[in-house]
């Protein structure tokens, strides 16, 4: 049994593709926010290309997972791994879409003078990127504790999003000429917050994969903290 089985190699291949997707997604988040901070359109020039690559990988991974399900009839840990892989695949692709949305808002912002120094948004971007990385690391290492830490980190990203919103509301109220830029910034923070949510979904899938325990939707809607909906 020392020689790795073909099936294990195929599972390993699936894992490698997801790691590659996650690396792309992280780079995209980095570049999109760096473009905003540095006010330089060249910084994120390659992001649309990366997004194309993500889309291509998404299809490849789904195809590979379906083939494995059809030909291997996996059970137990293998089955949970493959199902998790297809879900994580979708989450990463969605993260790519959100980065493209960020880039569109950044272009609006770069066409006008800066509204204010940016502190919270780069911080949010860092946190969201780390959540994506940790969620994928927890998948690769089968580490439910790391996955749990991703779920915990989401509260901080949510709090920052609320803070950005409150701050920019005061700008908009005091000077309507800032509305377009403030809205663009609010949307950027909203997209980053959504990226964090996708990382949380990945982490939940990892907990199911490693422990067979479903941690999604633990609270009833009534118990959920009232957030500022945008």
């Amino acid at each position: 049994m020392e020689k790795q089985r073909q099936f294990d190699r195929e599972l390993e291949d699936l894992k490698k593709k997801l790691i590659h997707m996650a690396a792309l997604a992280e780079t995209m988040i980095d570049k999109a926010v760096a473009e905003l901070v540095q006010r330089d359109e060249k910084v994120a020039a390659k992001v649309p290309e990366y997004e194309q690559e993500l889309n291509r990988l998404e299809i490849e991974i789904d195809e590979a997972a379906l083939t494995l399900l059809a030909t291997r009839q996996p059970v137990a840990g293998d089955l949970r791994f493959i199902v998790a892989a297809t879900k994580i695949n979708g989450e990463l692709e969605r993260i790519g879409d959100l980065v493209i949305n960020i880039i569109q808002n950044v272009q609006t912002l770069l066409a006008q003078p800066p509204l204010k120094p940016l502190i919270d948004i780069p911080h949010m971007a860092d946190l969201a990127r780390r959540m994506v990385r940790d969620s994928l690391d927890s998948f690769v290492g089968g580490d439910p504790l790391l996955a749990q830490s991703v779920i915990m980190a989401d509260d901080r990203v949510d709090a920052l999003k609320d803070q950005v919103l409150r701050e920019l509301l005061t700008y908009m109220m005091s000077d309507p000429r800032t509305i377009e830029r403030a809205l663009a910034l609010i949307l950027v923070s909203r997209h980053l917050e959504r990226i964090g949510d996708h990382a949380v979904n990945i982490a939940e899938d990892v907990i199911y994969m490693t422990q067979g325990r479903d941690v999604r939707h633990p609270k009833t809607p009534k118990e959920r903290p009232a957030d500022l909906e945008m």
Partner: peptide, 20 residues
């Protein structure tokens, strides 16, 4: 449970074809 999430490592190894 046995085929989705067995509790014993030996069961997992057997049902996933890794036993022996």
């Amino acid at each position: 449970a046995i085929f989705k999430n067995p509790s014993d490592k030996r069961t997992e190894d057997y049902v996933t074809g890794r036993y022996g």
